[in-house]
Each structure stands twice: as structure tokens, then as C-alpha cells.
Amino acid sequence: MKLSAPIFQLKRRAKIMVRNNNVPLHEALDQIAREEGFARWSLLSSQIAAGSLSKTILSRLDDGDLLLVAGRPGHGKTTLGLQLLLDAARNDRKAVFFTLESTEQQARKHIRSLEKDAHGFGDTLEIVTSDEISADYIIHHLSGSKRGTVAVIDYLQILDQQRSKPALSDQVLALGEFARKTGVVFGFISQIDRSFDPESKRLPDIRDIRLPNLVDLGLFTKACFLHNGEAHLQDIA
């Protein structure tokens, strides 16, 4: 959906509404969002942040990449992950969504909301919701996949939630080795730490990744950070 004005101008209008009408900022933002056809501001910002990269992100990924897609809840990281899979499907690539967070029904509903054509590419996406999802499970599932296959994992911080699964650092290392050998592209949806302060910087960065269990972030090759309608893709040195 095309907005009536750039998002920074919409934010400015909301701040003027706060001053003139003495309403909380979140109410003003939600009202602006409704005028733009969204139920609330978080939905508008998540769609716009993800949409700003969705047309180019696949072409900016190389075979074997490990991509972090990170942001606060409601700021578009799952949307961007699913749009990446849709773009892969449109390019006749195998696309798989491994989720420990959503049901298949929830994921399908989200995918349908993102499809802008009637070709039904979303129906070709494979959605895996097994509680057994881990690096070993994913590697076994993708064994024999062609180079350029795209898999998105939802989400990084709960891959080792069950004590029976290997440590997160070991799982990321194993998936990285598998990616380099096979050319499979992995996207990891990731939380950011609550200490991230949008008043001090517009977007989170690699220092804001939430790590309840330590993992070497240098194992990832690229990262995309999203917040409040903005998104930035960068290489990880």
C-alpha cells in the first residue's frame, strides 16, 4: 500500500496532533495509521520497513549467507522473512519456513496478507512447525536441496530452548558449515535486547542482538535491522 506521505512526515503530523490535541503519541500515531488504511501504527511501520527491502534483499544475498533479521516485536522482522521466502519462490527457488513460534495456520494467514498477485506463490512455501526444530533437524530436512534454496528460521533465541538440544553457538556453527557446503541461504529472525533506546539511535545494530546464551555473531554474514518503518541491510565484518 502506498502512503499519502513519507513515513517521517506522517510521524511529524502525529507529533503536531500531540501538541494541538493533548493526546498521547501512541494514540496520534494509531490515528494516522488508520487514515492510511492500517489498524494501528505498528502494522503500518512493520509493513513499510519490510517493504522497503523486500524488492531488493534477495538479490543482495549470496549462496551460503547467514542473515540476521532483527527488531522489536511488531516492527516487521517476520514480515520481511516471509517476503524473502515469497521472492525466492517467485524465482523458482525452494523456500522453507522453520518456525517454533507460529502455527502453520498463522504463518499461512500472514503469507496471504503479503501476496500482491494471484499466482499463489505462497502456496509453494513449505512451513515446518515441529517442536524438534534444531540445527540437526534443519540440516537433515534440507539435505539434497539445490544451491540458492532459502530457509528462514523463526527464531534464533529459541533454537536451544529445550535442554535436549545443542547449545545455540554449536547450532549456528553447524548451520553455517552446512550453508557454505551446500549454498543454502539462511535467514534467522532475531530479537533485540530491551536496552535498545530509539531515542539515542534510530535503528538497532549488532550490539543490540539479544543473546540469553552466548553465540559468536561473527558467524553471520549479513544483518538487517528494522525499527519504526525503517530498515537497513549490512554486511557483518
Rank of each mutant, 00 (worst) to 15 (best):
A50I: 01
T56H: 13
V128T: 03
E132V: 01
L114I: 03
L173Q: 13
G187M: 10
K116Q: 11
R60Q: 15
L142Y: 00
D193W: 14
Q171T: 09
S130C: 04
A174I: 10
Q83G: 04
V185G: 03
K15Q: 14
F121M: 01
E177H: 11
R163T: 01
L67R: 08
D170R: 15
L68M: 02
F188K: 01
S134Q: 02
Q106C: 11
R90G: 06
G120K: 09
D63N: 15
D87S: 15
S134C: 08
S130V: 05
T129W: 03
V215P: 07
G37S: 00
D235F: 12
C224S: 07
I236T: 03
G120I: 05
D92H: 13
C224I: 03
D208S: 02
K201L: 08
R147D: 07
L211E: 08
D123M: 02
K55S: 13
E27H: 14
F97S: 10
N20E: 15
E27R: 14
F196L: 07
Y155M: 07
D154E: 13
L29N: 02
L68G: 02
H119I: 13
R40W: 07
D160P: 06
A223K: 04
S59L: 11
K55T: 11
H140W: 11
H110G: 12
V96N: 10
R210E: 15
A14P: 06
I153R: 06
L219G: 05
E104W: 06
L10K: 00
V128H: 02
T129Y: 03
W41E: 05
R72M: 07
K165C: 07
G51I: 10
